[in-house]
């Protein structure tokens, strides 16, 4: 079982975002998806979890076609998927602990004691012990992201989708998050997609890296393969050299 996109198209009005994305994330691997801002990486991620419906094509998670699921089945599937939002998307009116508990309360038969234990465990993993009673407005931007991550991993999901989990974080916190992503893959066998602009981070956490470019997947390969690629568009992005992209376009 894995995550798979088959020929996914998505447009918002006249603006075409995805033009036939096909991508398979293998069971237990972490795949980094890179690409220019506004290219549709978040749209792709939202399609996988059913927040957006593709205009054409299908998204498969855990062997199920997401678009064909009835509402209850979709919620059942989402209990297996953790989603880390770009700007954390924490519930402002709730404390950190209440935010982390939200997903846990949807798991049938889980008692308050176990919920408390899971909250503590998730906050320990993101190095935010003792933050239970704070409100999102009382923590820093980086800490908010880590609370968002704690909320996503608290339910011990089989799949994790990270939308720029380290953007805007300091190098040390970025390394903490990267280590956690690796740990979740290695120890729990979580299948993950990490959207990132940070190539260092992508090389650290990903077994394979995919590049989304002009609505399609331009490249898929291991970190070593992407470093060796002769594709000027890919090189321009990973090396931060716009002149290569201009040459490729010309």
């Amino acid at each position: 079982m894995s995550i798979e996109l088959r020929d996914v198209h998505k447009a918002f009005g006249e603006r075409v975002i995805l033009e036939g994305v096909t991508l398979e994330v293998r069971e237990g691997e972490t795949m980094a998806v890179i690409g220019y801002s506004g290219v549709g990486k978040s749209v792709m991620l939202k399609t996988i979890v059913g927040l957006l419906e593709p205009d054409q094509g299908t998204a498969w998670v855990d062997g199920q076609d997401v678009g064909s699921l009835a509402r209850e089945q979709l919620y059942e599937l989402r209990r297996k998927v953790g989603y880390v939002f770009q700007f954390a998307a924490l519930f402002d009116s709730m404390t950190v602990a209440e935010n982390v508990a939200m997903g846990l309360r949807r798991i049938r038969g889980m008692g308050e004691q176990e919920i408390e234990a899971r909250i503590a465990e998730a906050l320990r993993l993101v190095e935010l012990e003792g933050f239970q009673d704070r409100y999102p407005s009382q923590v820093s931007g980086g800490q908010r992201k880590r609370v968002g991550l704690a909320r996503a991993i608290a339910t011990r999901p089989k799949y994790l989708l990270y939308d720029e989990p380290t953007t805007g974080l300091d190098p040390v916190t970025t390394a903490v998050i990267d280590r956690l992503v690796l740990k979740l893959e290695q120890e729990l066998g979580v299948t993950s997609i990490v959207i990132t602009h940070n190539m260092e981070s992508a090389y650290r956490v990903a077994r394979r890296i995919a590049m989304l470019y002009q609505g399609r997947i331009r490249f898929v390969g291991t970190p070593d393969e992407i470093k060796q690629t002769t594709d000027r568009v890919v090189r321009a992005f990973i090396e931060g050299r716009p002149e290569l992209a201009q040459e490729a376009a010309a």
Binding site: V49, G50, R78, F85, F87, L90, F91, M102, R106
Partner: peptide, 18 residues
């Protein structure tokens, strides 16, 4: 409206809440 534009409504969806 604020919950919608800050993706809190989407977050509820991903946490299996209607």
């Amino acid at each position: 409206g604020t919950m919608k534009v800050t993706e809190q409504v989407d977050a509820l969806e991903t946490l299996a809440y209607d």
